[in-house]
């Protein structure tokens, strides 16, 4: 996993609530057995018209935002399915940070496993950042994970919370399976005890 430390880039405003994972990447594009290549179909129904041509009104099709690295949206971002293809599609497009008032649990979790930082900030702060983002390429945001701040184009710093363990893994780009396997002894003894106490779980 790619580490996330500090990011300075263009932020795309997506003033929508309940952006679901089918919207982020429709199910028909989930047939790949790879983790990459999903970016071309990110936000497919918003980004493309029925005839397959780009929808010029959609933010990521506008010249200023074609290389956006931050996305700003409203409540309940990433609701719906558990598909990790949703963060894979964002990442493949180049988006490393999503800022919203709140996120659906599984999506939120999946972001951290893929080097994407989801930042929760109150609705009114998201509206302010959305206004900044509307300024396009002239208004870059900085997201500093180490210091836990979003820096507005004006230089104002907005602090955010992040789980300490997740921050550590993300800053260092660590795979948490390796971390867990350090507890292999504890897992072994847990299994031995349960097999004796609850034999119907032996499978």
């Amino acid at each position: 996993m790619q580490a996330f430390t500090t990011l300075t880039g263009v932020a795309a405003p997506l003033p929508m609530a309940n952006v679901d994972t089918d919207k982020i990447i429709p199910a028909r594009f989930l047939k790949s057995i790879s983790r990459t290549g999903f970016g071309q179909n990110l936000f497919y129904t918003l980004r493309f018209r029925e005839d397959g041509a780009e929808n010029p009104d959609f933010v990521l099709n506008q010249p200023a935002y074609r290389k956006a690295e931050v996305l700003i949206a409203f409540e309940n971002f990433g609701c719906g399915s558990s598909r990790e293809h949703a963060p894979w599609a964002l990442l493949d497009f180049g988006i490393r940070c999503v800022i919203a008032p709140d996120f659906a649990d599984i999506f939120h979790n999946n972001c951290f496993k893929n080097g994407i930082l989801p930042v929760r900030l109150p609705r009114e702060v998201c509206e302010t950042l959305m206004d900044d983002a509307r300024l396009g390429g002239n208004a870059r945001l900085t997201v500093d994970l180490e210091r836990q701040v979003v820096v507005r184009p004006s230089g104002e710093e907005i602090p955010f919370d992040v789980d300490p363990l997740r921050k550590h893994l993300l800053l260092n780009g660590l795979d948490d399976i390796g971390q867990t396997l350090q507890h292999a002894g504890a897992i072994d003894s847990f299994e031995t005890r349960r097999k004796a106490e609850q034999p119907w779980l032996a499978g």
Binding site: S81, S82, R83, E84, P87, I106, N109, N110, K113, N114, D163, L165, D176, I177, Q179, T180, L181, H183, A184, I187, E191
Partner: peptide
């Protein structure tokens, strides 16, 4: 019973556990 992403699927396959709050 709950849904997980693919990275967690790999985590469970490898360790039979999940890191959870």
């Amino acid at each position: 019973a709950f849904g997980i992403g693919t990275s967690e699927v790999e985590h469970v396959l490898a360790t039979q556990t999940l890191l959870q709050k």
